[in-house]
Design a binder for these strands. Structure first.
Lengths: 335, 335
DNA sequence: TTGAAAGCGATACCAT
DNA sequence: ATGGTATCGCTTTCAA
């Protein structure tokens, strides 16, 4: 692969001149430019971004840390960041791995070594303390889907609690009295917050919340099926279910129908996330839209601003997102 | 951000020694190593991968060119490459954009500038000629989902024609006589090959293939719905449909059911791709598994081998993949 | 075992 | 308008 030196030598100019041509520098003679350009073409010369990054201290790269790309949710996240990257002619550097605290740390470190200009990090395992230190050390780092009070202007997160409340209000407005919940069994923040918001709002509306109607399972389709079987086995009446996420909700619906319940006629089902799935399912899922792509784009934008020290208002304002109710076909007013 | 010089100065050793410590070099005194390590820790030193890449001429990076990440198919592709990247402690550099010939070229160029070690490129717009030249110029470049005869050992592709044949055989074995096709309206290779294989196999089994039963539309759910309406409007009898992909198939099924046809009792539907969707749909979709993740991993592996000049058998063998029939619930023997 | 110094490929400042 | 050169942070001989 040819270098700037090769071009300079063959074109009979200095490397400084070639550099000017490459970067559309201001002061280059027309014919010199022509000549250099043609030699570059001929040699198939491509500037070395690493060398460039070394001297300019800019990498035109945005690093993203996510568990993996198979999950459409994270793919959307990456896509949101990519939108911004492209807007600024930058590129995405992906660092996956989030099974353990160690692999999260490792993923971030790799990005650090690359000297990315900006970092959008989805971390669930690292401690608040470690992330706070990281944020202090690295100006262009933004956490997504995580809220840490002392660095909240460096966080972009969803209000899960409010999401639960919105779901509750929707079902209440549909006159449902006996409402079940199918939640994720994993005791991380999100499931608890969603359920808490849901329960609080129910209580606020003087609805009895029967803890017998709360079932937990794996947050995927199969988990939804299993949880529904467990729920049905209890033999308690209910006319609506608030489900932790859309994948589970799909499983819930299929198990309900397998057992002779029609959705939404007999039972209303509301999901969470609004992934692609929810639009393709039958009936189409009523759910809470999690604007992850928009959030990721916002996170990337912020990261870039912080990195550049642009002192924007955004830096002091909290970047909290509220999920939006998307009414589709899986919920119906109780008759 | 501190550099190797800072560490060297504070530790009172030369940068050469620090470098040795960082790279677990062979000849370093135990106490020196200790000291350097502790200073590194203290300073939060992280080696600069760009500088390193510059001198070693290795980037520990695999570049991927895809249209975007929103499509689960491409997300899976990226994930397959990532699997290999992680295996070799490398990272993914993503270059999206494939609306036009120009943007594809641009995406590849960006990766080239980064001096990625390997390239997995999904290109539909660039000409054979341009890709051939590229492949010749860049040892570690592999094309995925594209077949070019003269550089076939640098291609990893799916046999779409054979996929069509497999689908046909399945429906024939189920005793279907009147079979419809819903294909993508875009005249790129894939739709044509799939249909051709399908038609050839049908003919081979002495089945009449009625061109009236072939409808094309956008390759997404809505396209499937529209195509199905068009098909039903013709009033011709059919008991099975071969659909271009799963997203369309979902649309096909919902429109069929909206019109009083039960799937698979009245009509069998077979899709293509085996995306996540097909497992979540009701009924679960019978489809042809497109092993894109596996193919991407293979492409990445190959790219790395070519780049390293490892002269493996793989380099001469064609990397053709055959889709696999996945029988689920949307097809049934005709009674 | 350790250090000095020559690059890697580019940018940018200072001359001319 | 063009050239010379220090420099970015690191690896890697070659000496000591």
């Amino acid at each position: 692969m040819s270098t700037i030196k090769d071009v300079a030598r063959i074109a009979n100019v200095s490397i400084a001149t070639v550099s000017r041509v490459v970067n559309n520098g201001p002061k280059v003679g027309a014919k010199t430019r022509e000549k250099v350009l043609s030699i570059m073409q001929e040699l198939g010369y491509t500037p070395n971004a690493n060398a460039r990054a070394l001297v300019t201290q800019k990498n035109t790269t945005i690093g993203v840390v996510i568990p993996d790309l198979t999950d459409p949710f994270f793919a959307s996240l990456a896509n949101g960041v990519d939108t911004i990257a492209r807007k600024f002619n930058m590129q995405l550097l992906l660092s996956t791995g989030q099974m353990s605290e160690e692999s999260e740390r490792e993923a971030i470190n790799l990005l650090l070594e690359r000297r990315c200009d900006a970092f959008v990090v989805h971390s669930k395992k690292l401690s608040d303390q470690e992330l706070i230190e990281l944020a202090q050390r690295i100006p262009g780092l933004i956490l997504i889907d995580r809220y840490i009070e002392s660095i909240k202007h460096r966080c972009v997160w969803l209000d899960n609690y409010e999401g639960g409340r919105i779901a509750a209000r929707h079902l209440i407005s549909l006159k449902h009295q006996h409402i079940a919940c199918i939640n994720s069994k994993y005791v991380i923040d999100d499931p608890q917050l969603r359920l808490q918001g849901f329960a609080d709002e129910l209580e606020h509306a003087n609805h009895q919340i029967n803890s017998e109607l709360i079932v937990t399972s794996e947050p995927n389709q199969q988990g939804g099926e299993i949880a529904t079987q467990a729920l049905l086995a209890k033999g308690l009446p209910f006319s609506a279910i608030f489900v932790y996420n859309d994948a589970m909700a799909i499983g819930v619906i299929s198990t309900l129908e397998d057992n002779g319940y029609r959705v939404p006629i007999d039972v209303s089902v509301i999901g969470f996330d609004d992934v692609l799935l929810s639009r393709y399912s039958r009936p189409k899922l009523t759910t809470l839209h999690y604007p992850i792509e928009e959030m990721a784009a916002q996170a990337a934008t912020l990261a870039l601003e912080f990195r550049n020290g642009t002192d924007h208002d955004l830096h002091t304002v909290p970047h909290k997102y509220i999920p939006r109710l998307v009414k589709r076909e899986s919920t119906l007013a109780k008759t």
